[in-house]
Design a protein around this nucleic acid. Structure first.
Lengths: 130, 130
DNA sequence: CTGCATCCACCAGGATACTG
DNA sequence: CAGTATCCTGGTGGATGCAG
């Protein structure tokens, strides 16, 4: 990563940070606008398409489809189609998807714990810079 | 977040996920292309501008400036200018920045642990979809 | 209900040149 | 060395309409 797929002429960073590239690939995956939100939401159990849509609130149909496809591709969720009428599609976390919840929760907890400090820091910074 | 700054007509999600919005604000911050990389890199100690630039490898001058400004604004790093010639500017993690390393490491570890599974899942998925 | 296709706006982010 | 300023491109993501 980092260079996209472009040719890396030489290892630019010190060896210890070699895996950082791989890590940030995953980070980029989770870092998009909706993935984490959906993973956490599915942690409570399988949901249907529009059910997720309503729960997330504010996501477009298109992005929900794309995000779910991405998560499915990464083996984080399964997509189960029940050939009824009307069609019913359920999305559920895989074991891997579930395992992701823990570290994400940790980060989420951190976010909650430091939210106020961050807001304060931002306000202070903005006050210094007109 | 999620709605950007648009008016939220009604709470769209169940109450339990109320803070998820706040969390994803932080996630969006960390989810950009470079922030996490830089935070982890600064974990080893303070670094100078071009030092970071070289270590990260592949980041443009512009983006490094913007990323560092963002992190500074959020109270994650400090920026210290030594009025020497040539100028010397050091960036260092704040206490808050340091505290972030732990949950990020956890996520990074998860990424490392599941990298192979993810790649496999992707390959399998792509094989199904020509 | 669950999507895909299309069109389009926006902005993250790279390249380059210039300054203190 | 450590930035700022400007230009430009690609991708992200919203809105809408159509289909199974």
């Amino acid at each position: 990563m980092i260079h996209g797929n472009s040719t890396v002429t030489a290892a630019p960073a010190d060896p210890a940070h070699g895996d950082c590239r791989k890590v940030s690939r995953v980070l980029a995956r989770l870092g998009d606008k909706w993935s984490v939100l959906i993973v956490m939401l599915l942690g409570d159990g399988p949901r249907r398409f529009n059910e997720i849509r309503r729960m997330v609130g504010g996501i477009s149909q298109r992005m929900l489809t794309l995000t779910l496809r991405g998560l499915e591709r990464d083996g984080m969720v399964t997509r189960t189609v029940y050939p009824t009428i009307p069609p019913r599609v359920e999305y559920a976390l895989t074991a891997q998807g579930h395992s992701l919840r823990e570290p994400v929760q940790a980060l989420g907890q951190w976010a909650l714990d430091h939210m106020d400090d961050i807001d304060a820091a931002q306000a202070a910074f903005d006050a210094r810079q007109p």
